[in-house]
Write a protein that binds this DNA or RNA. Sequence first.
DNA 1: GAGCACTGC
Length: 623
Amino acid sequence: MLADRANRKMRLLQIFTIYCDPPGETGSGKTTQIPQYLYEAGIGRLGLIAVTQPRRVAAISLAGRVAEERRTQLGKLVGYTVRFEDVTSSETKLKFMTDGMLLREAIGDPMLLRYTVVVLDEAHERTVHTDVLFGVVKSAQRKRREMNKIPLKVIVMSATMDVDLFSEYFNKSPVLYLEGRQHPIHIYYTKHPQSDYLQAALVSIFQIHQEAPPSHDILVFMTGQEEIEALARTCRDIAKHLPDGCSPMVVIPLYASLPPAQQLRVFQPAPKGSRKVILSTNIAETSVTISGIKFVIDTGMVKAKRFNPDSGLEVLAVQRVSKAQAWQRSGRAGREDSGSCYRLYTEHEFDNFLPMTVPEIQRCNLAAVMLQLMALGIPDVMNFDFMSKPSPEAVRSAVEHLELLGAVERKDGHVCLTALGKKMSSFPLEPRYAKTILLSPDYSCSEEIVSIVSLLSVDSVLFNPPARRDEVLAARRKFTSSEGDHVTLLNIYRAFKKVGGNKEWCRENFVNSRNMSLVKELNLKMESCGAETGNVRRCIAHGMFVNAAELQLDGSYVALDTHQAVAVHPSSVLFQAKPAYVVFNELLHTSRCYMRDLCLVDADWLMEAAPEYFGRKLHPSKS
DNA sequence: GAGCACTGC
């Protein structure tokens, strides 16, 4: 019956937005059922039904569940496509995929002609990919209408109250509300503002611990690894010295950089009679769902990225959550039964939180997004129809960045893609990395550059357990190069390969197979420069010249494009070296503005790379 | 002489 109702609606509506509370994950069924209703209604006959997810695991597991429900083998009627994995076939009609993957496909097929329906799930998360997709599907709909093609139906599924924004954007499309299976949650606020949320969290944990039955688990939302580990230690210490009759406590930290085996500990039930206390980052807000949580403690804080378009700098800062985030957090207490949420802030403070989290598109560097939009053939990228527009400064600075890289040029007041830019857009990489790879054959070091970029693109190459810092330093010393961090990484990689690491050369963590195959597709000549690592640095200088810094007389550094004071990060092998010129991969704004991953370069190389640009930036006396 | 929320192509 429900299916019939959905089918009828489907025929009537071009687009509708679904409001569902709580966000449909395991059990709520909207993501698994709606695509099946669409298929049963015959909509899949003329094309595919795409269901996008922000995360790979979600796409994969949903596809598995739906295939099971249809009693078919995964990859036949129901399949999934995520990076590195395509489990679909010519029979596939229901395709679960990451939103980034659909965006990639749109480059070759901007009208998304293979699809009759696109379901954008978890839209409330507002990832960059989802936000760009909004614009892409909207324009595909319009173009298909204009060209009398089969219409594209779009369904936006969101778990928050901002449906008006979605509906308005999609030409006032109708909204359908679904009721979720949320259990009641008691919300408690503090009477007074808390100056120390960590102390407040500690007090709350032990207050609950002494009053509630031990089977009731606690989930605490905090901001990062360091404070989580510190609080975990404190809790364990205190728990040891509790009066007799108090139940034992199992404290489990949870954050993304924790090894997977340790992450799994949050799913294990505590021994009978013990209470499980999970101290988590916002990973438990969306990515990890833990059952059995009866109490949520919300510090109201989150560590999140901010972007300053003037400096082009992304800053990671501890800040207040939005109301939507606070509701998402409290919802984690009511998944199986009623629960409680202790908010470590006053109701008045809550009233002043932003209603929604600022979409990522308004908080990040837009260079890659702009390049992608141009590759999609969007005529006027400067005025792209974003649902939430990024600031004009951010757009302008991104386009200027691409112009410097030679990816775009201005013709009659319009910005358009160059041949180089077109090639760059085919890499799933930041534009400057793509450019460096494309330049590498000119320096006979494509093999080295592809390796280095791959090493920089994955974050699991080097471990840095703080407790074993001396051992780490000693182990790394033999690879250290005075040429900088890039060549040092290369040394580590070459050593890895030498000991037989090339068995699973491409699928290993070290090398990014897609980049490798892209290089083949683009007919780049794979060449090694052997011991001539100067070529590697020269190539890096040419690709990354925008991130150059110059040593000053007083021993400090200045970034050449913004003239901002920067410092060598202590983790760099060049920390004590003080070379005159370096290029760096990224700036990290913490106690100071640090350059990370540095490469020693010659001023001449920078001049060669962008004579006009550095003619303005460099000291004339130093050339 | 420091310290990295979370995704993703």
